[in-house]
Structure formats: structure tokens, C-alpha cells
């Protein structure tokens, strides 16, 4: 454990312990990819096994899913802007862009909850059939990640207000940035391989 601190370069990479945390988080994202890959594979295997419940083609609608997609993609962009401002040392802009990211994420989540309730009213629940179990688990796991991400960002915003930009707070924001972009990538796969295919097949 070395406490030497570099004098230049991005704040989050100046101390060895922060470099290690970032590498550790990349590896964790590798594990997350395997986790979601397993859920996608499960979904693919159980695709079409709707038993006597409603098939997805009758429920999936392009409108709401497209709005959700744009919300999340935009939030990924604003999250990138937040990290950009952090690199420029602008704590206030970092905070503002992060709050916008948060609002977009929360709106996405609201739509997803609405969507799930809507499907449940139409008779498609986790318990209806193997297909719907797989659907709700895959989309739900993503939604749960977004929820945790929102809670996490709120904690970091409080820490930013208390401590300002330090190597440690910068590293924390950088890491949640990675996490947020990762969730966006996962959503793109859900959008295409779950919703788009589900609408036509």
C-alpha cells in the first residue's frame, strides 16, 4: 500500500489505491457481463415458451420502449458530460450533470414500473410462464441495477457537497460513470434482442 500521490493527470488516477479500485471495478464489470449474458441466454432458451399466457407480440409496444431507450441513452451522455466536467475541475457542473442523469434514470425507471404493471394487468406476470419469468428477471435485474445506481449517485452527491473534488471523490464518480455506461450497453441489448425481436416474432 503506497501513499505516494502523483501531482499531474486525472485526479482519480493519482493514487495507487484509486488506480487499483478502478481496475477492480473493471473486473467486476466483467463479472457483470457474465451475469447478464447468463440471463440473456436463459431468455433466449425460454423464448416462445409462453404456455397459455399472452405472447409478447401482443403486449410489446414500440412507443414506450423507444422513449425509455432515449431516456437512458441521453442519461449516459449526460453522465459522460459530468465526468468531462470533473476532469476540468468543475465540481458544480459535475453535480448538475449528475442530477440530470439521475432524473433521466428515475424517469426511465418510472416508465419501466408502469410497463411491468401494465403487463401484469394483461395477465403476463413472473408466474405466468417460463417465457415471462425470463423476461421479468432479465429486465428486472437491469431495473434493479438502475435503482441501485440512482441510490449510489445520491450518496456520492452528498459526499461531493461535503468534501469537494478530491482524488477519492473523483474516483468514486469515475467508477459510477463506468457502471452507468455499462447499464446503458446492457439496455441496448435488451432493447434489440428482447423488445424488437419480441415485437415481430
Amino acid at each position: 500500500m503506497s501513499s505516494h500521490e502523483l501531482k499531474t493527470g486525472p485526479l482519480e488516477y493519482r493514487r495507487q489505491e484509486d488506480q487499483m479500485t478502478i481496475l477492480g471495478f473493471w473486473i467486476f464489470l466483467g463479472a457483470e457481463i457474465v451475469l447478464f449474458a447468463t440471463l440473456f441466454a436463459t431468455y433466449a432458451v425460454l423464448f416462445g415458451r409462453t404456455a397459455d399466457s399472452t405472447p409478447p407480440m401482443e403486449l410489446f409496444e414500440p412507443g414506450i420502449v423507444l422513449i425509455m431507450t432515449f431516456l437512458l441513452l441521453t442519461s449516459s451522455f449526460t453522465c459522460g458530460l459530468a465526468i468531462h466536467e470533473m476532469r476540468r475541475g468543475n465540481a458544480k457542473a459535475l453535480r448538475n450533470w449528475m442530477i440530470i442523469t439521475l432524473i433521466l434514470g428515475a424517469t426511465f425507471l418510472g416508465f419501466e414500473i408502469y410497463e411491468f404493471i401494465h403487463y401484469a394487468h394483461e395477465g403476463a406476470t413472473m408466474q405466468s410462464s417460463a417465457y415471462w419469468s425470463a423476461f421479468f428477471t432479465l429486465a428486472g435485474t437491469h431495473g434493479l441495477h438502475v435503482t441501485l445506481g440512482i441510490g449510489w449517485v445520491i450518496l456520492l452527491l452528498i459526499q461531493l457537497a461535503k468534501r469537494g473534488l478530491t482524488p477519492k471523490t473523483s474516483r468514486k464518480f469515475f467508477v459510477i460513470g463506468l457502471y452507468w455506461h455499462f447499464l446503458d450497453v446492457v439496455w441496448i441489448f435488451i432493447f434489440t434482442s428482447v423488445y424488437l425481436i419480441g415485437m415481430v416474432v
Binding site: T42, V45, L46, T50, Q127, S128, S133, F136
Partner: peptide, 14 residues
């Protein structure tokens, strides 16, 4: 615990 159908013999689980 939650009644899903992944590995069941009903609901077309596998």
C-alpha cells in the same frame, strides 16, 4: 419462493 416457472414442469419451464 416467488412462483416463477424457469425449471418447472408446468408453464413450459425447462
Amino acid at each position: 419462493i416467488f412462483g416463477a416457472q424457469f425449471f418447472t414442469l408446468t408453464g413450459e419451464g425447462m
